Amino acid sequence: MRIIRTLIVTSLISLTIACQPQQSDAIKQYPHAASGAYDAALTSDGHYSLVSTVEHGVAVWDNQVNALKFQWYLSEDEQNLVIALDIAPDGSAAVTATKEQFAVWDMATGKNRGYYQIDKSHIRDIAISKEGRYVLYGRADGVAVHVDLQTGRRIEFLGHQEKINAVALSPNGFYALTGGNDYSAYLWDTRSGQVVYRFNHASRVTQVALDPQARFAFTAGSKKQAIIWDLTTGAQHSNLQYIARQKIFSAVRFSDDAKWLATGSPSRELALWNIDTGERVLDYLVAAREHSQPKSAVVFAVAFTGNNQLITESSSGLSEYFEIKRSK
């Protein structure tokens, strides 16, 4: 997901504030970033959104009432663009990161829990565990770092040979999934640094995700290979079925019942997949800004709401809702 940002940052900065969204399949739309977003995250139920804005730091939105809850800046003196962020699975804390530093925030009070500077290379992706205790980040030098913010314990995973593109962390913080340009994704134990499974691809791994109930993992390569893995055996459970020779996924979410997978892409596409068969069940388009260049939008985050809907945050700066109407 993070490799997409270098391709779209120029166009995001040039977005026009007053422009109107192009047509999408959404049943509801709400503006969350007038000049466009650079990244976003959602709680698992879609209740809260984090939106990294081009001009105004990170905006925290309460989606149940569509109200701005907090606004966070990593520095009061510098315009540090947040390039990666995540919300803890229990919604208690959040993490925001620039290339060189990250900050942890309390989602109830909005207060900062600490600022942290990394010692080398730069951050490509970041994740946070329940209660905000553990943080995992992947670096451009191929090193993944797991930090216990309570004890200060820090472990580096050196399995990757090239830069890391995406990371995911189990809710308890004990397992990490990392994917990189070395055509590999690793599931590894953060307490020992030992590899549990290695998932091989025919191209660089651009996206990873974990089912919070530890049933499945998702890894996607850049060339027609997006796989759901069974975490009890490490074997392939299904392969997403699509025709495109190259497809990048910029957002992924497992449903709570582990029957469905929702994905977003850099080309406005939102899709719902059957986990068991890999079949695409539903397709949608998010909105793009009329005067943006190119005329597209990156889906940064997706979540299943409790009322049979999907909610997204995208580079258009819009939060959008889509009705799930499944025929199967």
Rank of each mutant, 00 (worst) to 15 (best):
I3N: 06
I4E: 12
I4Q: 08
T6P: 09
I8L: 10
S11F: 08
S11A: 15
T16P: 10
D25W: 04
Q29G: 11
Q29T: 12
A33S: 09
L42F: 03
S44Q: 14
T53S: 10
V58R: 00
A67Y: 05
Y73F: 15
L74C: 05
D77Y: 11
V82R: 03
I83E: 09
V95N: 02
A97D: 02
K99N: 13
A103E: 11
V104A: 04
G110N: 02
R113F: 12
Y115D: 15
R124F: 07
I126F: 06
K130A: 13
E131T: 11
G132E: 08
L136F: 00
A140K: 03
G142R: 02
V143Y: 07
F157A: 08
H160E: 07
A166T: 08
A168Q: 05
L169H: 01
S170L: 05
Y175A: 10
G179P: 05
L187T: 06
V196Y: 04
H201E: 07
R204C: 13
T219W: 01
K224L: 11
I227D: 03
T232C: 06
T232E: 12
T233G: 07
Q236W: 07
K247T: 08
F249Y: 09
S250K: 00
W260M: 13
A262S: 05
E269D: 12
T277A: 02
D283E: 12
L285D: 14
R289G: 13
H291A: 14
H291V: 12
S292C: 10
P294D: 06
K295R: 11
F300A: 06
A301N: 02
V302R: 01
G306V: 01
N307S: 14
Q309N: 11
E313Y: 06
G317F: 09
Y321A: 14
I324M: 09
I324G: 06
R326W: 09
S327L: 13
K328F: 15
